[in-house]
């Protein structure tokens, strides 16, 4: 469990993190999304006390990180793969970090095996590839068997096999009831790994919702309808509270009505449909639309965010956006 309240970090005149509040809960993978420089890493460093907040506070499992008697048992953290002395072997690095908590060789060997580092454990870290360094960072994070895991860009530099491995690991750890807090700039990765997503833009939380809701933002309510009878159907739609725009002679983009309603309307009025497709958004679309102009949005500004990205001209209420059929192919 990670709880941040009004967390702020300023470097001189520049505000890196601007009064953010959020909660990462046990049993869930919480994704932390944002463009470079949004303040993700700074936030993660503040959680474990490496950076001192300018204002606000953050607790892990109910206490400030530094106040725990056994910090590595509470939180395992991968901040960047480079938090290792390059002149030391992976084995000695893990032994040295573990020794602070009385964690011995047995557990060190376990995390080495778990992260697939057996063959390079005795080699100096300076010669590691980015992927190997990343695995060592994850091994370090797991060392204390922590209840909360904080992983900053864990799939950075990993090969496809490693990416799947991290994904499964994160899901498995959350499945055990741990809190997993994961940052990534890979939206597709997040869609497959996270349960809940916090989007950060220019130091502010611009969305904090379950994954499906975030995707729904970009899905909007637009539905593509292809019919040889476009002109008549458009009039019918207008009388039923929707709005239709014709982009080709037989193609309509409909807002304000969902696909099932449109299908029923077509059936009852004898209009032949050649295509009826709810516009499907991806997490990429949602993310880009949320962050492209993030200074306009503020914490809790999801309703505002939903207005701009989609083909829809009329702003739809957030509840309608969430109700739109998003399941088919949304997590592509």
């Amino acid at each position: 469990m990670i709880e941040a309240q009004g967390l702020t970090k300023r470097y001189g005149a520049k505000t890196a993190v601007d009064g953010i509040s959020f909660t990462a809960r046990p049993g869930l993978v919480t994704g932390f999304l944002g463009p470079n420089g949004a303040g993700k890493s700074t936030t993660m460093r503040m959680i474990v006390g490496l950076d001192r907040p300018t204002a606000g506070a953050v607790t892990v499992n109910g206490k400030p990180y530094a106040d725990h008697h056994s910090p590595l048992n509470e939180v395992g953290v991968l901040l960047d793969a480079k938090a290792v002395h390059t002149g030391r072997s992976a084995l000695n690095h893990l032994l040295a970090i573990g020794a602070t908590h009385g964690i011995g060789r047995k557990r060190v060997d376990e995390v080495i095996a778990l992260t697939g580092l057996e063959s390079v454990a005795r080699k100096r870290v300076g010669g590691f590839s980015l992927g190997m360094g990343q695995r060592l960072g994850i091994a370090t994070a797991l060392l204390g068997d922590p209840a909360t895991l904080i992983l900053d860009e864990p799939v950075n530099g990993l090969d496809p096999e490693g990416v799947i491995w991290v994904r499964n690991l994160a899901r498995f750890l959350a499945g055990e009831g741990r809190t997993v807090f994961l940052s990534s700039h890979l939206m597709s990765e997040m869609a497959q790994t996270a349960d809940h997503i916090i989007v950060l833009g220019r130091g502010k939380v611009i969305a904090d919702s379950p994954v499906a809701d975030i995707i729904a933002l970009s899905t909007g309510t637009a539905v593509r309808v292809r019919t040889p009878d476009a002109a008549r159907f458009a009039e019918l739609i207008a009388t039923h509270g929707g709005s239709a725009k014709s982009t080709e002679h037989d193609l309509l983009v409909v807002n304000g009505m969902a696909a099932p309603q449109l299908g029923e309307l077509a059936s009852t009025s004898g209009v032949v449909l050649h295509e009826l497709t709810p516009a499907v958004g991806s997490l990429e679309d949602a993310y880009l639309s949320l962050t492209q102009d993030d200074v306009e949005y503020h914490a809790g500004g999801m309703a505002a965010a939903s207005a701009s990205p989609t083909p829809s001209a009329a702003p739809a209420p957030a509840s309608a956006a969430a109700a739109a059929p998003t399941t088919n192919g949304a997590l592509r």
Binding site: P26, N73, H101, L114, D145, A147, I164, F172, G177
Partner: peptide, 21 residues
Amino acid sequence: MTTTAAAVAPKPTGSRTAALS
């Protein structure tokens, strides 16, 4: 690789045998 986390120790709340000293 996909045999993943079977080796992660089972206690989700963290085992308390170790402590910072």
